[in-house]
């Protein structure tokens, strides 16, 4: 029975810890910053657990022990008093050493984090909006500056510098598998350096309450080998694909003559709004509405037909479209790979 209980406990613990793995976990680090932080988390937790156990033992001991009755209660025992004083002073000294030690560890970990991006070749501006992320790749050549949304492609194994700011309220950028969190503050630029050791997709999440759809403000870091990343960048710089079918052509016309055009941009067309996500290559992204829906024709239609049902409070208004108009616009957007 005892053996069964211990096996069950072990299995439950293993299953529980399994929740710490995956594409969004500070305990499953995939980059140097996250590794440094994960090590710090475990060391702090371990050391504090040891101290807690020692304190509990020290508390329990006098309760368990039978009090010694001195022969003469009124006579002071200078030796015993000295012993007690020595124990207390030792404990105080040890506490000071541990606290200073942990502070130093934290300080040196911070130095390591700050040094990650000192030679970063790639700079990306990430601007927080209610409730999506604007991503702008900086380049010395103006024609190579690229604006996209919600998905951040980076070359794997290279440090990348992120410049974080916001246009409305304070957001916080947190991709736990790669680094710690840092706020996006309106009118202020924060700098966060990240590096992914291996190619992969790492999920991030706004970590500062920013309004009704804070929970649906996700982002994805997509780390790729350098060659693939360069190819992606060149693809994204191209103007939007011309509509292939008659329905898609009708969708393009509708897009340009309906409220869509007031806020969104599609490169290569007159649509030039910058207050909502750039849709030039919207169908090449994996998700819609900042990680709320996976990219598919059905989800595109659902999102356009009733954004206030999918993401209540979002700044995308309900637009009155007939079924045919909705289908045409979806057919057009679906082709924007």
């Amino acid at each position: 029975m005892k053996r069964f209980a211990s096996i069950a406990f072990g299995t439950a613990t293993a299953l529980f810890l399994q929740g710490c793995a995956g594409w969004q976990s500070a305990l499953d680090p995939k980059g140097p910053a996250a590794s440094e932080l994960a090590w710090l988390i475990w060391f702090f937790a371990g050391l504090c657990a040891v101290v807690w156990v020692l304190v509990m033992i020290a508390l329990a001991m006098p309760l368990m022990m039978r009090p010694r009755e001195p022969a003469e209660p009124l006579v002071l025992d200078a030796g015993a008093d000295n012993r007690k004083l020595r124990v207390v002073m030792t404990a105080v000294g040890l506490t000071a050493v541990i606290l200073i030690g942990l502070t130093l560890l934290s300080f040196f970990a911070n130095r390591t984090l700050a040094a990650i991006g000192s030679d970063a070749a790639l700079t990306i501006r990430v601007t927080g909006h209610q409730w999506w992320w604007e991503v702008r790749y900086e380049d010395a050549t103006p024609s190579r500056i690229l604006t996209t949304a919600n998905e951040i492609h980076i070359p794997a194994g290279e440090p990348v510098r992120l410049l974080l700011t916001s246009t409305d309220v304070i957001h916080s950028f947190w991709v736990p598998s790669l680094s710690g969190k840092l706020d996006l503050i309106p009118g202020h630029m924060n700098v966060l350096d990240i590096k992914a050791d291996k190619p992969g997709v790492y999920r991030g999440q706004c970590a500062e309450f920013c309004g009704a759809q804070h929970a649906n403000m996700g982002t994805f870091i997509i780390a790729e080998p350098r060659a693939k990343f360069d190819a992606w960048w060149n693809d994204q710089l191209q103007p939007a694909a011309a509509p292939m079918s008659g329905e898609a052509k009708a969708g393009e016309d509708l897009f340009l003559n309906r409220p869509c055009v007031m806020c969104h941009k599609i490169g290569g067309t007159p649509a030039g709004g910058t207050v909502a996500p750039d849709l030039t290559h919207v169908a090449s992204r994996q998700t819609l509405a900042a990680g709320t829906l996976t990219m598919s024709r059905g989800n595109l239609a659902a999102w356009i037909a009733d954004p206030q049902g999918v993401k209540p409070g979002s700044h995308m208004p309900v637009v009155d479209l007939s079924g045919d108009e909705l289908n045409a616009i979806v057919a057009y957007l679906e082709g924007l790979k």
Binding site: D306, G309, G313, P317, V318, V319, D320
Partner: peptide
Amino acid sequence: ERDTRPQSALG
């Protein structure tokens, strides 16, 4: 309660 879903959006 915020009224974000109009009965009929246009016209």
